[in-house]
Every structure is written in C-alpha cells, then in structure tokens.
Design a protein around this nucleic acid. Sequence first.
DNA 1: AAGTGGTCTAGACCACTCT
DNA 2: GAGTGGTCTAGACCACTTG
Lengths: 242, 242
Amino acid sequence: MNRQLPSEPGQSRYGALAVAMRARIVQGEWPPGAALPAEQALAAEHGVALGTMRRALDLLAEQGLVERVHGRGTFVKAGLSGAPMFRFFRFGDAGVEPPRSRILSRDKMAAPADIARGLGAAPSDTLLRLKRLRLVGDRPCLYEEIWLPLPLFEPLAKGDLVAWGDLLYPLFLERCGVHVHRAVDAISFGNLAATQARVLRLSTGHPCARVQRQAFDVAGRCIEMRTTLGDASAFHYTVSIT
Amino acid sequence: MNRQLPSEPGQSRYGALAVAMRARIVQGEWPPGAALPAEQALAAEHGVALGTMRRALDLLAEQGLVERVHGRGTFVKAGLSGAPMFRFFRFGDAGVEPPRSRILSRDKMAAPADIARGLGAAPSDTLLRLKRLRLVGDRPCLYEEIWLPLPLFEPLAKGDLVAWGDLLYPLFLERCGVHVHRAVDAISFGNLAATQARVLRLSTGHPCARVQRQAFDVAGRCIEMRTTLGDASAFHYTVSIT
DNA sequence: AAGTGGTCTAGACCACTCT
DNA sequence: GAGTGGTCTAGACCACTTG
C-alpha cells in the first residue's frame, strides 16, 4: 500500500517508527519490565509491514531500550542494575564477597560549576550531595562523591540511612522512580587529598584513579554526577578496538 | 526453493553464509580494499535469496570485516590505519600538529614469558623488539616497547630506520603484508623505571599510565604485543555503558 | 543510464516458551 | 496448542554513485 515517501525524521520509515516507539516508551505507556504488544499488533497499529516494524524494534534493542526474547516477547529494559564501578578495579579479595557501602555524609548545598552544568542545573541550585565509602570485606576500596538533582531526589534527603542497602540504583528506582538507563564514565589519574586518603587508609598524595560518571535516565536527562576514587595500582580496564 | 533446514554451523543460514564469506576474505580471494561482487551475484552464487545474503554481509560489516557504501559497493576493510594511541592521552599541543615517532632501538631476542604467550610463540623463540618514542612537537610524550613475531616481520629487522615514517601499521602492510584488523588495549597504572623516565624527561618513579596492546590480523592471529607508557596526569579516556 | 546498496512489502515456515 | 520472536523468500521501488 504505502509505496513511496520514505518519511521525515531521520530518513527511513523504520527509523521514524523507532523514534515514535521510543517516545511512547519514555512517556511510560509501557513501564520498565513490561512486555510490548506483539510485532504483528504493532505493525498493524502503525500501518506498516511486519518486517518494517521488526527493523524498528531491532534498532531499539541495539540502543538498549528494549530487550527481545525469543518465544516470550519484547520487553522494556529495566535500567542498569548492579554495581558496575568495580569493573574498573581489581581488589585481591573481590569476587568472593560482594562489595559493601557506607554513607559518610549527606547534605544539601550548591554544587561546583562543572557538576551543576553536567546535571543541567543552575549554578546556584541546591543539590543533594552524598559521600560514600565502598568496602570489600573490611577493607576500604573506593571513595565516592555523588550529586543528585533536588526536587527529584527529595525522598533520599531524609530518613534512615541504614535501610539503604549496598546499591544506589535500585534505591533510586524504589524511592524516586528513577531508572538509570545509560552512563558515561571518564577515566583519569590524580592524587588523593588528605581527607580522601584518610578514609581509604592511604597516604595523602597517593596516586589514584578517578572515574567521573554522568548517568542518564531513559528520557536522556542527566540524573547523577559521581566521582569515584580508588588506588591507582588497583585500576585495570580493557578496551577492544576495531 | 530451499525451504526447511536452518543449516549447520552457528545456526541460521545467514550466519553460515557470513562464516563462508569470512573464510573467502581471509584466504585472500578479495584483497583488502577491493570490492566484493554485487549482492545479487553473491546471492545467486550461493543459491539464497537476496535478503539472506544481505543479512550475512550486514553481519560482516558489524564485525568490521567489510564496509558497505551506498551506491558504490561492499569493500574489504583495510584494517586500522592511524595512530590511535593518542586517544588515551591529552597533551596540550596535540591536535595542532601530528605526533612524530623516533625509533630508539631495534634488536632480536627472546621475549618475557607473557609476551611470548600473547604472541602464541614458544618462550625460547627469537622475536623482534623495538623501542620507540612518540613526540608532539619537540616534547617526548609516550614511550613504547613493541614485540613482533619473527619470520613474519623479518623485512623490518634490517634496512634504514629513517624511511619508516611516523606510523607503524602502514609500514606493517607495505613491508610485511600484515593488516592489523583488531586490537585489545589493557589499561593500568604504574611508575616509570629510570631508563623510561629519562627519555620522557620525567623523574624516576613518576606515575605513569600503561597501555598493553595485543593486535590481531584478519585471521585472528596475534601479530603484535606493545606496551605504551605516558605521564599519568595526561591520561584521559571515556567509556559509555548501557 | 547503469549499477550499487537501502528500504519496504507480503507471506511462509521455523524455533522457542508457556500453559 | 497457541503465541511469541527469528529466518527466509520473491519481488518492487528508492537513493546514491559513477561513467
């Protein structure tokens, strides 16, 4: 039927379909974890052939927005789950026991200019700041400073810290309804300041690896700025290039 | 026509086709840079529908083995070209002028066990070892130690070093017929030994970033082990996770 | 104008998962 | 067995590149 006209947005019809489907997902028409309607149904609804809708869904799968499972269906992806910070570091006894977390401080204040800019906030905006220590067994391994935008993360600004558990992202979801969908980590090397060195039980000026993370939700808004510091000699990461 | 039987290797017919095409490419039926026959011709030759052959070629394109250009054809990829080592480092005046190279030494000797293992060589095999300095302007920036397997790279073991130019991979291709197709870089952190520090004009024990590279040709054989060292404070790298 | 890859369709059958 | 995504086909038209 619809023979000509490739359509408008990117270029191809399946590209446009992917954009449309992405919008419906972001607007919450199907919550994370839920199954989308069958390909046939979606194709009919949008008035395209089955293969075209498949192409669109495959695109969204490549982008990590949905997950396709043979014989079961197509599901909205439920964001980043685990504690992927430790993939940058090798601590001797890791892998045996899961890393634990301890919140060192929690306060509200204006952020440095680069942090505010990363979050898309005004330089004078008040944000939520967390300092956190991550441990393997009893050994302090990573020091983190985390900035969160404040109307959104108000539920974390009060209440008991003990009930938080070891992972933040599941907490973001339960308390604030925020799904972390994508993150960008910038790696560099530096030296520990005195206070940072103290909690990590290293000497001031000790070489450290710094991972600056910017995390985004499904809609593409930045919802977290995080700086992680760890002993440089424990750092290890592998990149494949083609 | 050929309705049933999904075929053997991986599972799908297009998967098997991709494997077959990969073999033909690796065996040199079409040299790097050359154009493959048209999809129609290949599909007819293998007795499959056009769409199936397209799927197979798309797969090879994803894997970086071929490159598809609209309206022109499908081409065997010519391997890694540039000097992608500098993507891990930010030196102030980089980007303005291209980095230069200076070979510090060239000799034949047995390699440490891990190097030999990485190259798939016996621990006692004699290999070609290069030490190289990379400069931006007149400023020494990176120090490299490069190990190459020896029957293959014999053409580099003799002759004038001045004619080598600033990039190794094009040289590998011209002199030895080796295409670097894929590489794996392992990033870690350490301190400069005395000799390394001297050529980089830094102090002994200065913090450094270490990039350990393992490079492979189209057939998947490791053809280079390289260790690159640079000032840790100049290191910078970004990872996107989903 | 001819040749290439890119998109779209319509319909068939296969493989997996759940009940 | 019913429903899902995965594969394959056959043929049409579109968009880009080159002579």
